[in-house]
């Protein structure tokens, strides 16, 4: 305001931003431009390969068509079921671990800074490491196979579920809890009868969301040996059987679409 009063009467020109705002904006744009330019310059692009790309894609398309549909009942179906189990088991495991961690992370339930910090660090670590990296770790521990995949999915999901659930717990209206406290309820019954009913819808919708994500993620874990569709895909790619890869890609696409429909249906029933 004072700014406008100072500049306007003198000369009736108009500038959208003050000098300071302009500088900040220019600096930001410059930063973006420099970052992009530096990245373009230093990233290793082999131009012949890039120009060749459309032809390679066409070639791949030709090899994929027609898809080897007979491959589905032979191998893909079993792999698909495995992927489903990995995702669902992983989600169930993550629920078991995320519940206590989210309670420890919510500062209104656990008024202990050290425990909060501990739980939050666990959750952040779980989230920062990609499920594919988790899978690499557990393939090294349990050996190749779906078990490594399920544990990897669980480890990645704990952070996601725990964070969202912890935030939901922290938003619970204090009044209801205080009433329970005043009635002499123990910590356990406060959680069971105060917090749980309040976060239940959020909890189920978080689990559903994560399950949907897990279905997608578990379809690629096999690329590092953790079972499911990815493993079948890896095998087909290694032997250049692109018509089989096409079947797997179609399967994944179908699963994603079905998953979306199922989740939309349940979410509508939940809310």
């Amino acid at each position: 305001m004072s700014n406008a009063m100072a500049t306007v009467p003198a000369s009736r020109t108009w500038q959208r931003h003050t000098v300071g705002q302009k500088l900040a904006r220019t600096a930001l744009w410059l930063l973006i431009a420099v970052a992009v330019a530096l990245s373009v310059q230093s990233i290793n692009v082999i131009w012949e390969f890039l120009w060749d790309a459309p032809e390679q894609m066409m070639d791949m398309g030709r090899r994929m068509w027609p898809p080897d549909l007979a491959y589905y009942p032979k191998t893909v179906h079993a792999a698909l079921m495995e992927t489903f189990h990995i995702a669902t088991l992983g989600t169930i495991f993550s629920m078991v671990f995320a519940l206590p961690l989210s309670i420890l992370a919510a500062h209104n339930i656990t008024p202990h800074k050290g425990l909060n910090l501990f739980a939050k660090t666990m959750l952040v670590s779980s989230r920062s490491v990609n499920s594919l990296v988790w899978a690499l770790l557990f393939v090294a521990v349990f050996g190749p196979g779906p078990l490594a995949g399920a544990v990897a999915i669980a480890c990645r999901s704990v952070g996601f579920v725990g964070k969202l659930l912890g935030e939901a717990l922290e938003e619970v209206h204090f009044g209801a809890i205080e009433a329970l406290k005043a009635a002499g309820a123990s910590q356990t019954s406060q959680i069971l009868y105060g917090y749980w009913p309040a976060v239940k819808p959020a909890f189920w919708s978080i689990m559903l969301l994560r399950w949907d994500i897990n279905i997608r993620e578990s379809s690629v874990l096999g690329l590092v040996g953790a079972g499911g569709l990815g493993m079948a895909m890896n095998a087909a790619i290694d032997t250049f059987e692109w018509d089989r890869v096409a079947v797997i890609l179609l399967t994944i696409f179908a699963v994603v679409v079905i998953g979306e429909v199922v989740v939309t249906y349940f979410r509508r029933r939940l809310i």
Partner: peptide, 24 residues
């Protein structure tokens, strides 16, 4: 949205070869 970035990356690796470009 349908395909995991890893799967898309595999397809692009086939198209432009191994390396950062496929990742981008």
């Amino acid at each position: 949205r349908a395909f995991n970035p890893v799967i898309v990356a595999i397809v692009f690796i086939k198209a432009v070869g191994f390396g950062a470009l496929a990742g981008v």
